[in-house]
Protein backbone atom coordinates (compact mmCIF):
# COMPACT_ATOMS: atom_id res chain seq x y z
CA UNK A 1 0.00 0.00 0.00
CA UNK A 2 1.34 3.42 -0.94
CA UNK A 3 0.83 6.85 0.54
CA UNK A 4 1.00 9.79 -1.78
CA UNK A 5 1.41 13.54 -1.59
CA UNK A 6 0.39 15.82 -4.43
CA UNK A 7 2.11 19.22 -4.18
CA UNK A 8 0.43 21.38 -6.77
CA UNK A 9 -0.88 24.92 -6.64
CA UNK A 10 -3.55 24.40 -9.29
CA UNK A 11 -6.71 23.07 -7.69
CA UNK A 12 -8.01 21.59 -10.93
CA UNK A 13 -4.80 19.74 -11.78
CA UNK A 14 -4.44 18.43 -8.23
CA UNK A 15 -7.97 17.02 -8.29
CA UNK A 16 -7.39 15.53 -11.74
CA UNK A 17 -4.29 13.72 -10.53
CA UNK A 18 -6.12 12.64 -7.40
CA UNK A 19 -8.93 11.00 -9.35
CA UNK A 20 -6.35 9.25 -11.53
CA UNK A 21 -4.19 7.82 -8.76
CA UNK A 22 -7.27 6.75 -6.80
CA UNK A 23 -8.04 4.24 -9.53
CA UNK A 24 -5.04 2.21 -8.35
CA UNK A 25 -5.74 -0.30 -5.63
CA UNK A 26 -2.32 0.14 -4.08
CA UNK A 27 -2.93 3.78 -3.28
CA UNK A 28 -3.92 3.86 0.32
CA UNK A 29 -4.06 7.52 1.18
CA UNK A 30 -3.50 10.81 -0.66
CA UNK A 31 -2.85 14.29 0.66
CA UNK A 32 -2.97 17.41 -1.46
CA UNK A 33 -0.79 20.39 -0.59
CA UNK A 34 -1.60 23.75 -2.14
CA UNK A 35 0.81 25.97 -0.20
CA UNK A 36 4.57 25.80 -0.41
CA UNK A 37 4.93 26.50 3.34
CA UNK A 38 2.85 23.49 4.31
CA UNK A 39 4.76 21.13 2.06
CA UNK A 40 7.58 20.11 4.41
CA UNK A 41 5.45 19.68 7.52
CA UNK A 42 2.94 17.52 5.67
CA UNK A 43 5.70 15.31 4.27
CA UNK A 44 7.33 14.98 7.65
CA UNK A 45 4.16 13.97 9.42
CA UNK A 46 2.55 11.88 6.68
CA UNK A 47 5.76 10.21 5.37
CA UNK A 48 4.52 9.42 1.87
CA UNK A 49 5.97 6.75 -0.42
CA UNK A 50 5.42 8.85 -3.52
CA UNK A 51 5.68 12.63 -3.93
CA UNK A 52 4.09 14.28 -6.94
CA UNK A 53 5.54 17.76 -7.15
CA UNK A 54 4.93 20.44 -9.72
CA UNK A 55 8.27 21.83 -10.89
CA UNK A 56 6.93 25.37 -10.71
CA UNK A 57 5.65 24.87 -7.19
CA UNK A 58 8.69 24.77 -4.93
CA UNK A 59 11.62 27.11 -4.57
CA UNK A 60 14.98 25.39 -4.84
CA UNK A 61 15.71 25.61 -1.12
CA UNK A 62 12.35 24.11 -0.18
CA UNK A 63 13.01 21.34 -2.69
CA UNK A 64 16.34 20.56 -1.01
CA UNK A 65 14.81 20.57 2.43
CA UNK A 66 12.00 18.33 1.27
CA UNK A 67 14.40 15.83 -0.27
CA UNK A 68 16.15 15.63 3.07
CA UNK A 69 13.07 14.98 5.20
CA UNK A 70 11.29 12.53 2.94
CA UNK A 71 11.68 8.81 3.51
CA UNK A 72 14.88 7.54 1.87
CA UNK A 73 13.04 5.12 -0.37
CA UNK A 74 10.25 7.56 -1.32
CA UNK A 75 9.95 8.23 -5.06
CA UNK A 76 9.76 11.83 -6.29
CA UNK A 77 7.74 12.43 -9.44
CA UNK A 78 7.89 15.84 -11.11
CA UNK A 79 4.86 17.39 -12.73
CA UNK A 80 5.67 19.65 -15.70
CA UNK A 81 3.39 22.37 -17.03
CA UNK A 82 4.96 21.92 -20.47
CA UNK A 83 4.91 18.98 -22.91
CA UNK A 84 7.57 16.29 -22.43
CA UNK A 85 9.43 14.39 -25.15
CA UNK A 86 8.17 10.91 -26.03
CA UNK A 87 9.85 8.33 -23.84
CA UNK A 88 10.35 10.67 -20.88
CA UNK A 89 11.16 8.67 -17.74
CA UNK A 90 8.37 7.62 -15.39
CA UNK A 91 9.43 10.15 -12.76
CA UNK A 92 8.40 12.94 -15.10
CA UNK A 93 4.78 13.58 -15.95
CA UNK A 94 3.28 16.47 -17.85
CA UNK A 95 -0.14 18.01 -17.32
CA UNK A 96 -0.52 17.54 -21.09
CA UNK A 97 0.09 13.77 -20.98
CA UNK A 98 -2.76 11.57 -22.19
CA UNK A 99 -4.61 9.32 -19.77
CA UNK A 100 -2.87 6.21 -21.13
CA UNK A 101 0.60 7.66 -20.70
CA UNK A 102 -0.20 8.81 -17.17
CA UNK A 103 -1.69 5.46 -16.20
CA UNK A 104 1.37 3.70 -17.58
CA UNK A 105 3.76 5.88 -15.64
CA UNK A 106 1.85 5.54 -12.37
CA UNK A 107 1.62 1.81 -12.88
CA UNK A 108 5.41 1.58 -13.17
CA UNK A 109 5.93 3.81 -10.16
CA UNK A 110 3.53 1.84 -7.99
CA UNK A 111 5.13 -1.43 -9.05
CA UNK A 112 8.42 -0.09 -7.87
CA UNK A 113 6.96 0.92 -4.51
CA UNK A 114 5.47 -2.55 -4.17
CA UNK A 115 8.83 -4.21 -4.82
CA UNK A 116 10.49 -2.01 -2.25
CA UNK A 117 7.98 -2.89 0.41
CA UNK A 118 8.11 -6.61 -0.44
CA UNK A 119 11.76 -6.61 0.49
CA UNK A 120 10.97 -5.06 3.83
CA UNK A 121 8.07 -7.36 4.66
CA UNK A 122 9.01 -10.86 5.59
CA UNK A 123 5.85 -11.67 7.42
CA UNK A 124 7.00 -14.53 9.61
CA UNK A 125 8.51 -13.74 12.99
CA UNK A 126 12.12 -14.82 13.39
CA UNK A 127 12.86 -17.25 16.26
CA UNK A 128 14.50 -14.41 18.11
CA UNK A 129 11.44 -12.20 17.69
CA UNK A 130 9.25 -15.03 18.96
CA UNK A 131 11.37 -15.21 22.11
CA UNK A 132 10.98 -11.49 22.65
CA UNK A 133 7.25 -11.63 21.92
CA UNK A 134 6.90 -14.32 24.58
CA UNK A 135 8.41 -12.05 27.21
CA UNK A 136 6.38 -9.03 26.09
CA UNK A 137 3.19 -11.09 26.16
CA UNK A 138 3.66 -12.23 29.74
CA UNK A 139 4.00 -8.60 30.68
CA UNK A 140 7.71 -7.88 31.13
CA UNK A 141 8.99 -4.35 30.49
CA UNK A 142 11.67 -3.63 27.90
CA UNK A 143 14.25 -3.28 30.65
CA UNK A 144 13.35 -6.60 32.24
CA UNK A 145 13.49 -8.33 28.88
CA UNK A 146 16.90 -6.82 28.18
CA UNK A 147 18.26 -8.11 31.47
CA UNK A 148 16.74 -11.54 31.05
CA UNK A 149 17.96 -12.11 27.51
CA UNK A 150 21.34 -10.31 27.80
CA UNK A 151 20.68 -7.76 25.06
CA UNK A 152 20.44 -3.98 25.24
CA UNK A 153 17.12 -2.20 25.80
CA UNK A 154 17.68 -0.56 22.45
CA UNK A 155 17.74 -3.95 20.72
CA UNK A 156 14.59 -5.01 22.55
CA UNK A 157 12.84 -1.90 21.29
CA UNK A 158 13.91 -2.52 17.73
CA UNK A 159 12.70 -6.14 17.95
CA UNK A 160 9.37 -4.89 19.26
CA UNK A 161 9.04 -2.45 16.40
CA UNK A 162 9.56 -5.26 13.93
CA UNK A 163 7.08 -7.49 15.71
CA UNK A 164 4.43 -4.77 15.63
CA UNK A 165 5.06 -4.11 11.96
CA UNK A 166 4.85 -7.75 10.98
CA UNK A 167 1.78 -8.62 13.03
CA UNK A 168 -0.12 -5.34 12.75
CA UNK A 169 -0.64 -5.34 16.52
CA UNK A 170 0.44 -2.37 18.57
CA UNK A 171 -0.60 -2.84 22.17
CA UNK A 172 0.79 -5.24 24.77
CA UNK A 173 -2.64 -6.73 25.47
CA UNK A 174 -3.10 -7.31 21.75
CA UNK A 175 0.26 -9.09 21.57
CA UNK A 176 -0.73 -11.25 24.53
CA UNK A 177 -3.88 -12.34 22.71
CA UNK A 178 -1.85 -13.15 19.61
CA UNK A 179 0.70 -15.13 21.62
CA UNK A 180 -1.98 -17.25 23.27
CA UNK A 181 -3.85 -17.86 20.02
CA UNK A 182 -0.64 -19.10 18.46
CA UNK A 183 0.47 -21.18 21.43
CA UNK A 184 3.56 -19.08 21.99
CA UNK A 185 2.50 -18.78 25.60
CA UNK A 186 -0.22 -20.53 27.60
CA UNK A 187 -3.14 -18.97 29.38
CA UNK A 188 -1.54 -19.95 32.71
CA UNK A 189 1.62 -17.98 31.95
CA UNK A 190 -0.15 -14.69 32.51
CA UNK A 191 -1.13 -13.93 36.04
Amino acid sequence: MAKLVIAESSHVIALGLLSLVKTFQDVENVRIVHEEEECCSVIEEFSPDILLINTSFLKLETMHRMLKIKKDEAIVVHIFNTPLPIGAPMEQVSILDSKDILLNKFDTILKRVRNLSDELDTEELSPREKDILKEVAIGLTNKEIAEKTFISTHTVISHRKNITRKLGIKTVSGLTVYAILNNIIQMDDIS
Binding site: L167, G168, I169, K170, T171, S173, G174, V177, Y178, L181
Partner: peptide, 10 residues
Protein backbone atom coordinates in the same frame (compact mmCIF):
# COMPACT_ATOMS: atom_id res chain seq x y z
CA UNK B 1 -7.39 3.99 18.99
CA UNK B 2 -4.52 1.50 19.03
CA UNK B 3 -6.43 -1.01 21.13
CA UNK B 4 -9.37 -0.94 18.75
CA UNK B 5 -7.01 -1.26 15.80
CA UNK B 6 -5.48 -4.36 17.41
CA UNK B 7 -8.87 -5.91 18.01
CA UNK B 8 -9.57 -5.53 14.32
CA UNK B 9 -6.21 -7.01 13.30
CA UNK B 10 -6.72 -10.01 15.55
Amino acid sequence: EETLFDLKSI
